[in-house]
Amino acid sequence: MPKYAVVIPAYNEQGAISDVVNAVNTTASLNGIKLDVIVVNDCSIDSTSTIIAELSCIALNLPINLGIGGAVQTGFKYAFENGYDFAFQIDGDGQHPPEELPKLIRASEENNWDVVIGSRFIDKIGFQSTLLRRTGINYFKFLIRSLVGVRITDSTSGFRMINRNALSIVNEYYPDEYPEPEAIILYAKNNLNIGETPVNMRERQGGVSSIGKRASIYYMLKVSLAIIFTFIRVKRKK
């Protein structure tokens, strides 16, 4: 039976984190999945660390704030070193309903995908984000398709499942800031099969987005550059 890890990066998520962790554990026992929750506390300044110490999860407390990419990678490194077969990534703010986890497992098994991304834009159900963000996401869809030929409708989605092949790659390198779109290029260049499955997302239950309004232009520029540079830097494996 495969061993699953669920990596949850948490920065000041005292409001939502316990519900998320408990919901993941409930989903696992209902579906008979062998799963460990790994919460990566990215040096939160609220009571996240005391809350996660009481939950049934593996708590990784970073001594300094690394940002979302560094935090997620910490969880992936732990999962890789400890022999997990698959690792999920879900947000700590309750945006990603854990009940959808089995959907990603099924999609990966049926299609033989190394990387499964939960997309809110395939069935267009649940929280659809703002028009501005959707425009940005469509632009990334175009950019990613032009570069690596994979069609990803929700490239910024942080609701993902990766297998051990992908874990061995992100163990070595994972983007720091706004990592999601760039990671797709990284996986594609390493010849991993990437697919999407429809999921229902909610509006965040607590915390604040890592991308503020003023930062959105910077976000677009930074991610575009990162996508192009990763595309150039990572040699395609044969």
Partner: peptide, 12 residues
């Protein structure tokens, strides 16, 4: 970054 990640894993 690498040091921080190693520390978090070792602390656990």
């Amino acid at each position: 970054k690498i040091l921080a990640q190693e520390i978090a894993i070792l602390k656990q």
